[in-house]
Amino acid sequence: MTEPNQPQPDPNKPEPTIPPLDTIADSERMPPRTPRTAPPRPAPIRLRDDVPTGALVAFGVIGSAAVLLALIKGVPKVMDWSHHQDWRWFTQWVATVADPVHAYLAAHTAGLPLTASSAFVIWQGVGLAALILAWLTGAVGARLTWIAHGACTAAMVWDAAPAAGRPVATALVVLAWTIGSLFALRGLSLRPVLNLHNHPAR
């Protein structure tokens, strides 16, 4: 029910029209970009102009004396220390890895033009070259070669090592490969790289 004094709406009165929406281009909506200028870098130090000649000569003399002192005093001590160390653990580690590989190659190169000794040399050369190239260049091919070399080495040692010492020999291969991977796979990250391109609006 409506109140008696309330005016009644006129049914014949037209409804108000809605004005059309004016679209604005995106280039007009966004404020113009202002280029970001990097802070000025300090000028590099020029040895000839900024450092006195006497200081350069003093630094050269002190540096040369320090190098000579390190060579005279340090090298004999290092050599004396190395002579008193027992390095049999290292040679035994190398033999634990290399002997099964050589035995595997000798057993699986029968009837091939390639001898077991040549295959063993190739195995050593490929591993060393892949390690050095992956370390110095970080190339994908060198790193893949290093990974494949480690996997093949572990498989050969697992197959040719004695049954009783097979797990230990394979573990030593993996440990040696991971130590080399500290250099060969340096800087490698498993996190995905997201490239976000901010295109200007048209």
Score class of each variant (00 low, 15 high):
9 P>Q: 08
9 P>K: 04
9 P>E: 04
10 D>R: 07
10 D>Y: 02
11 P>S: 02
11 P>E: 00
11 P>Q: 06
12 N>D: 08
13 K>M: 14
14 P>R: 01
15 E>T: 01
15 E>C: 00
15 E>Y: 00
15 E>V: 01
15 E>S: 08
16 P>N: 01
16 P>T: 01
17 T>I: 10
17 T>V: 10
17 T>W: 00
18 I>W: 05
18 I>E: 12
20 P>R: 02
20 P>H: 04
20 P>F: 00
20 P>V: 01
21 L>T: 13
21 L>Q: 12
22 D>E: 15
24 I>C: 00
25 A>S: 15
25 A>V: 04
28 E>Q: 09
31 P>M: 02
33 R>K: 10
35 P>D: 07
36 R>C: 05
36 R>P: 01
36 R>M: 06
37 T>V: 12
38 A>C: 04
41 R>P: 01
41 R>N: 08
42 P>F: 01
42 P>C: 02
44 P>G: 02
44 P>S: 09
45 I>W: 05
46 R>C: 13
47 L>H: 07
49 D>S: 14
49 D>I: 07
49 D>Q: 10
51 V>Y: 08
51 V>Q: 04
52 P>K: 13
52 P>S: 15
54 G>I: 07
54 G>V: 09
57 V>W: 10
58 A>F: 10
58 A>Y: 15
58 A>W: 07
59 F>V: 13
60 G>H: 08
60 G>W: 08
60 G>I: 06
61 V>R: 08
62 I>C: 06
62 I>R: 09
62 I>G: 04
63 G>E: 09
63 G>P: 00
65 A>T: 14
66 A>L: 14
66 A>W: 11
67 V>L: 14
67 V>G: 07
68 L>R: 03
69 L>G: 14
69 L>Y: 11
70 A>T: 13
72 I>Q: 12
72 I>T: 15
74 G>T: 07
75 V>I: 15
78 V>G: 09
79 M>T: 14
80 D>S: 12
80 D>V: 07
80 D>E: 14
80 D>K: 13
80 D>M: 14
80 D>N: 11
81 W>M: 08
82 S>C: 11
82 S>P: 04
83 H>V: 10
84 H>D: 12
84 H>R: 10
84 H>K: 12
85 Q>Y: 06
85 Q>P: 05
85 Q>N: 11
86 D>K: 07
86 D>C: 05
88 R>C: 06
89 W>I: 07
90 F>A: 12
90 F>E: 08
90 F>V: 13
90 F>T: 13
91 T>C: 05
93 W>D: 05
94 V>K: 15
94 V>F: 06
94 V>N: 14
95 A>S: 13
96 T>V: 13
97 V>W: 01
98 A>Y: 03
98 A>L: 06
99 D>S: 14
100 P>V: 03
101 V>D: 02
102 H>P: 05
102 H>Q: 15
103 A>V: 06
103 A>F: 00
105 L>A: 00
106 A>E: 05
109 T>I: 03
110 A>G: 04
111 G>L: 00
111 G>H: 03
112 L>C: 09
113 P>Q: 04
113 P>E: 03
116 A>V: 02
119 A>P: 01
119 A>V: 02
120 F>W: 08
120 F>Y: 09
122 I>L: 12
123 W>R: 05
123 W>T: 15
